[in-house]
Structure formats: C-alpha cells, structure tokens
Computed example of a mutant assay.
Amino acid sequence: MSIHVNGKEITSRAINIESAYHQESGADPRYAQRRAAVALTVRELLRQRAEQLDMAVPEDDDDLDPVIDELIATEVHIPTADDTTCRRWYEQNPERFRTPDMAEVRHILLAGHPEDLEERNQARATAEQLIEELRRDPDAFADLARKHSRCPSANEGGHLGQVSNGETVPEFEDAVLRLPVGLADQPIKTRYGFHVVEVLQHVAGEQLPFEAVHERIREYLEAVSRQRAISQYIKLLAGDAEIRGIDLDQAESMLIQ
C-alpha cells in the first residue's frame, strides 16, 4: 500500500514505521495503519502548502513541526471564546461544573479472589454474618473491622473518610453513593471481595461559580475551535490536491503530528 499526494509518494514502509506511533493496546493493527496513513497524508499536504508559500521547509521531516505551526498560524483563523460564549456553555452544561457528591463511609473488607469461588462464597457468608451482628450491636463496627477487615483502613476501625467517584473502584463507589445513611442491608461485591458498609453521611456536590471555571471553559472551547478550524483547512487542501491510495473523506480522523 502506498499513497501519492500530487505525485509525491508515501511508501508502505513509511506507513509501517509511522504506525508504531499509533498503536493502541488491544486494537486491530489495521487501525494503527489507517491512522498512520492519514497522518502522513495530512503532513505531506501541509508540507507542500508550506513550499507553495515559499516557507523555509527543511529536508528532514523530523524538523517540519515548527513550519507546520507557522503555516497554521498564518492561514488558519481560530476563533476565540468571549465571555458571552463561555457563559452560555456554562449554563448549558451545568453538570460539568459541580464538585463531586461524596459519602463518608466505613467498611469491613472480607477478601475473596475473583477466580476463587470457594473463597468468594466464604467471604460473602462472613460478610452476611457480620451484618447480622451489627444489627444487634451497631457499636461493634470498629472492633469487627479491626478483627476481620483486610483493608488498611482496619487500623482506623474501617473508616475510609469521604469517598467520591475516582477514589476507589467504580463498583464500590457506585454502591455507596446510592446507599442511604446507615448500615447496608447486603454486602457490596467488588473485585476485592465483599464489603460490610456503613454510610455515615452524604455530602452533596455544589455548583461551581462561573468565575471559578471561566478559564477552563475558555481553554476547552478554543481547543475545540482550533481542531475544527484545522480540520476544515486540511479538507480544503485535500480538495485541491490529487490524492491516490487513500480517501480522506472516509478517514476516521485527520491528524496533525
């Protein structure tokens, strides 16, 4: 497989070498090949446009990036995001700008390896027994955690502090953030085993003020505008070029390396 851009050949060997930079774990190697082919085609289009403008294009392709940056700065208008645009985005996407919901939790981990069915069953049974004990004697939680829990928090009587998304494993977070305050009726199953859980309190997330996130919104919107503007510019260059061996209109993405 080779590609020609206005008569300039991009060889199969070059595509194979480039594909090493586009590998993704577990992905079909052909996907990396397609991304590499698109990247090299786009790069060649930009190189040829820089030559048309009599820019100082280096012979070594590894030194081409500064020229591409200059070309884009010269020929691509990238809109800025003013305060009105940023505020509109903020008001249309309020869920993006909240502090996370949290739950203050203590737990007792009964460890059980996912592939050891007997150990998992024993962990579940022990967790259910402990829940029954705690229904009779809620004040025994800390002592039972120190005795049975296989989590480092056992030294703190099972107290984990405030838990929010991204701080533990998802299956644990999803459960504790939905549970009501108090001792959970059933053990929570995770990849580590079964957890006896008591939710001490919920702390609801709060909406961040616009002023606190204004700069983050501006950077995001301008990054999106930049990518869109560059993509349109590449499409214009491709439309004026003779390209054989690849259809950029069918490509999944247009890359600038």
Rank of each mutant, 00 (worst) to 15 (best):
F194M: 11
P180L: 01
V181P: 06
D143K: 10
I17N: 05
E219S: 14
E9D: 01
S12D: 11
E222A: 05
D54K: 11
Q33N: 06
S25Q: 09
F172H: 14
H159P: 01
R218Q: 13
Q92P: 12
E44A: 07
Y233C: 11
R124K: 08
D116V: 05
D82K: 02
R135W: 10
H202N: 14
G193E: 03
Q227A: 15
Q227K: 04
L255H: 05
R120S: 11
E18V: 14
R88D: 04
E24M: 14
E128W: 11
S253Y: 05
L179I: 00
Q207A: 15
L255K: 00
K235R: 11
P180A: 01
E206T: 07
A154L: 10
V176E: 02
E206A: 15
V176P: 01
R124A: 10
S25E: 14
A142D: 03
V57I: 07
A123L: 03
E215L: 12
E167R: 04
L117W: 08
V196C: 00
K189E: 14
D101R: 13
A251V: 01
E104M: 09
M1F: 12
P100I: 07
R150V: 04
K189I: 08
Q92C: 09
D62G: 05
E91S: 09
L40H: 10
S225M: 13
E242F: 05
A14P: 05
M55V: 09
L237G: 06
H22L: 04
V105H: 05
E219D: 12
A37S: 10
A56W: 01
E128N: 04
E115P: 07
S2W: 03
I234T: 06
D83M: 01
L221R: 09
I217T: 11
G182Y: 01
L130E: 01
L200I: 15
I15V: 13
E198L: 10
A123E: 02
R34W: 05
G157S: 13
G166K: 04
E51T: 14
H159M: 15
Q257S: 12
S164Q: 03
L160E: 07
A140I: 04
G161N: 00
A37H: 13
A154F: 02
K8Y: 10
M254Y: 03
E167N: 07
A37W: 02
D139R: 15
M1D: 06
G182Q: 04
E156A: 15
L236A: 08
K189F: 13
R43K: 02
K189Y: 09
Y31W: 14
I188E: 05
A154S: 13
E173Q: 11
V105G: 15
H4W: 15
L130C: 02
Q207V: 14
E215Q: 08
G245Y: 06
D82S: 00
